[in-house]
């Protein structure tokens, strides 16, 4: 097991299997290419995307289907190629790819946490490659309120 300095939890050990390469970096973090994806039972279902090169760079992620159970991925041909996935169809979330939304946990001017459904983090689980896809035409919000998670009415009752 390797050791890593994390932003929130001090030094942690991680498996090489938890490391994903982002060949294109992320918008705003173009120099960060290697991230460890860490989860902890006590923090379930949150995940932590910790840069291996800069301890101060860490993102909180929420599995996309937790953020929105009806979420539909619409990767472009370029996205599929970057992920080394077959063209012509969308990958299956959970088996082929892990798909998660970045959480903004709050800020001075934005007290309520939001998730970015417009630009999910998508990981090819087999090849351990990741991208942040931008689903331009999806209509998903980059600031989807997290508050809706618990207060969502049971839609089945309304139909």
């Amino acid at each position: 097991m390797n050791r890593i300095q994390t932003k929130c939890f001090g030094e942690m050990s991680y498996s090489q299997k938890a490391v994903f390469e982002f060949p294109g970096g992320l918008p705003g973090f173009e120099d960060e290419r290697m991230f460890a994806f860490l989860s902890q039972p006590a923090a379930h279902p949150l995940m932590f995307m910790q840069s291996l090169t800069r301890a101060s760079v860490c993102f909180i992620l929420l599995p996309i289907l937790v953020a929105d159970p009806n979420y539909e991925l619409s990767l472009t041909p370029d996205d599929l190629e970057a992920l080394h996935l077959p063209a012509g169809r969308q990958p299956e979330i959970g088996t082929e790819v892990l798909c998660a939304a970045m959480v903004c946990a709050g800020a001075e001017n934005r007290p309520h946490p939001t998730v970015n459904l417009l630009a999910p983090v998508v990981l090819n689980l087999r090849e351990r490659i990741g991208i942040q896809a931008i689903l331009t035409l999806s209509g998903y919000s980059h600031r989807h309120a997290l508050l809706a998670l618990n207060s969502q009415p049971d839609l089945a009752l309304c139909s």
């Binding site: 932003k7 929130c8 939890f9 992320l26 918008p27 705003g28 973090f29 760079v57 860490c58 993102f59 909180i60 970045m102 959480v103 903004c104 946990a105 709050g106 800020a107 934005r110 946490p113 970015n116 417009l118 630009a119 942040q132 980059h142 600031r143």
Partner: peptide, 11 residues
């Protein structure tokens, strides 16, 4: 949004 998300991460 990435910059906001990264700077929002506090224990």
């Amino acid at each position: 949004e990435n910059v906001s998300a990264a700077s929002s991460v506090r224990r």
